[in-house]
Amino acid sequence: MTDVSTPPNRGSAATVPVGTVLSLRDIRKSFGSLNVLDGLNLAVYPGEVFGFLGRNGAGKSTAIRLIMGITRSDSGQINVFGQPLQDDVVGIRQRIGYVAQDQNMYPWMTPRVLARFVRGFYPRWDEQRYWSLVNDFELPAKRRIGTFSGGMKAKLALTVALATRPELLILDEPTAGMDPVARREFLDLVREQTQRDGATTFFSTHLIDEIEAVAERIAIVESGQTVYDGALDPLRNSVNRWSIPMSLYVPGALPGNFALDSLRVLSEGERQGRWHMTLQFSETTLATTEIVLNDGWRHDVMSLEDVFIALVSNA
């Protein structure tokens, strides 16, 4: 089965795509014998909300830690704001707001002390915004962070990140451990704030519904590689599932008159008396060919989650 639907920028494009806020080229990183990232490629464009989707342990956090310079990649090229990361790590970080996966801020600090501490590092620090967000989130200004709950810590981290008026906001599974109400409130806030600043948001999560609510373009990563990198809608369209009752199914048959070379069978199998086939079309074939269904085949609606599972389980 030929692999046709490779995303456009996969492979060894040496040149840096122009105008990206963030681009990762062929990133490799391993911890001892476990290699976490195995040739990751990404590109994020200004102003967009970029979803970074992947299963737990797929290397999302490690990728973000590489972008932030917390750890160093074994090989590969990272460009932020159009310049290589190593050139000016400090300068770059001044323009990034980062909300880590598990907040490990100093337990003995209070929000007031934390503000006084962090303020010094960010030239564009906005004190009023920090305190207005703290009040919005009803965070106790004088209590020690050590006594905060998981959700409160995440909100505080976001407050700090936003108060620096970042050009790039990186969120690493910020809503882990939040109840649905708090999560929704958090996502609304992210969307509202980013629109206000026109900042680019890099949102890493394994929760599909969050991506659908917020992101315009996404990348799906699985075992250290980019499985899909592109807009949300083309993804949804490029993957479809058809099913036919077992009684009518002829092995090897296709739902429509597609040319084999223009598609990829993601999965097929028998479930509840029907034979299901999930196919992925390349962008070009989608644009040009009209899909004519053979008889007996029925088009099943796929949610983004189904698409994600199909793509990821097949990588």
Binding site: R65, M68, G69, I70, V89, V90, G91, I92, R93, Q94, I96, Y98, A100, D102, Q103, N104, M105, Y106, P107, V118, F121, Y122
Partner: peptide, 14 residues
């Protein structure tokens, strides 16, 4: 051990 070093390393300071 408390992993607060990551918070420091995420700050824009060398």
């Amino acid at each position: 051990d408390d992993a607060t070093i990551d918070f420091l390393r995420s700050l824009p300071v060398s």
